[in-house]
Nucleic acid binder design. Sequence first.
DNA 1: AACTATATTAAACGCTCGTTTAATTGCAAG
DNA 2: CTTGCAATTAAACGAGCGTTTAATATAGTT
Lengths: 214, 214
Amino acid sequence: MTNEANTRQKILSAAGPIFAKRGYQKATVRDISVAAGVNLASINYYFGDKSKLYLELLRQARDHQGGGLDFPPVDGSIDAEELLERFVTVLLRKLGLGEEPNWQMKLLVNEFLAPSEAGRQIVEEYFAPYFESLLTIIDRIAGRTLSRAERLRRGFSVIGQCLHYRLASPIISMLAWQEESEGAFDVEPLARHIAAFSVAGIRGSLESATNVRQ
Amino acid sequence: MTNEANTRQKILSAAGPIFAKRGYQKATVRDISVAAGVNLASINYYFGDKSKLYLELLRQARDHQGGGLDFPPVDGSIDAEELLERFVTVLLRKLGLGEEPNWQMKLLVNEFLAPSEAGRQIVEEYFAPYFESLLTIIDRIAGRTLSRAERLRRGFSVIGQCLHYRLASPIISMLAWQEESEGAFDVEPLARHIAAFSVAGIRGSLESATNVRQ
DNA sequence: AACTATATTAAACGCTCGTTTAATTGCAAG
DNA sequence: CTTGCAATTAAACGAGCGTTTAATATAGTT
């Protein structure tokens, strides 16, 4: 009993970073067992199989994804534009701009981009509330009632800009090779740009939005 | 001689869609040989190994990526905002919104997101000119001279919005489940939204851009 | 001390993969 | 007809993978 929780926990601790770094397919149970300092067969003994271990880690990541980088509450006391910039800042940080993201966030982002059948629901449970709070910020910036489709498109425009810096980072560093761009893609200036761009975009696309058939 | 080009071509034709659909890792040489109607060993006979076949296909994709969806020339005779909307429309189509993209584009996008050592240069050669032409459109919309960093950030904001619909499509269909959103994410209305959002974003972020330290 | 349920271990199983081998075919040149 | 070379084939190789097994060790109970 004293050891059950022990090796089980050792497996979980070792597997998280490995799954996050290599992805589900390329992460091998042998690597995990070695990193955990436990026998190979222990993984199947405690978790049944590789996929169940992965699912357990995904649930852990959803439930307490460490880091303390939680989005500020969306209340009425703060300027909406300021709120958006904070939202973008936190999201960029969570996505790993500036520093390495923790394995929990990596796992969730991986599932976000290529959901497995089992992981789909978990990711939805994690991201949906954040996305909805972004939509309320957008409502306040727009200043008028938007249709569901209008809100979604503006929300995706914000999220898309942020995700791009995490997804296309190899290409970005290829194109942004100049020394003059020094620091231009650090979190703070980047968040300022995305927030300013988006505030103008949200407001500016309002008049034309009424003409868009949907 | 009559047969050399024959089986070689059969392999190339069969391998393209398979690599595009499954990705490099999950695509197996056995699947390819069966689909091509060719002996398993022929692949190594003609191409050396799996990675060299893949590289050959990547080069093919870069050189003549079919579909006739080329971006319109960026000349001065057309309104810059109109140009941007066309650019976005073509990009969304290339990315496979609305219909299945051809395997050439899929290969290039896959490499774009997770470049292999060998493929990195090929992807850069393909995307760089398109990206630069987007930057000139942005210049005209901005109406004043931008620094390299300012141009890049605005370019990435446009590209990021477009890519998001290809990358996060599973999540998007999860969040946009409503019937009222019917048609709101088809190519044309989506392109109109992204173009309008971006034009406003490009112009609106100009005044604050001067205050951003970089 | 003997028993029992649990935990750990080394080894092997069965499968898939990319690749290689060695034999055979097809065909044009001498 | 025979020689020689390119092309094709069936088969196997060897490595890596997730998983299973069967034996052993450990600790709690009576």
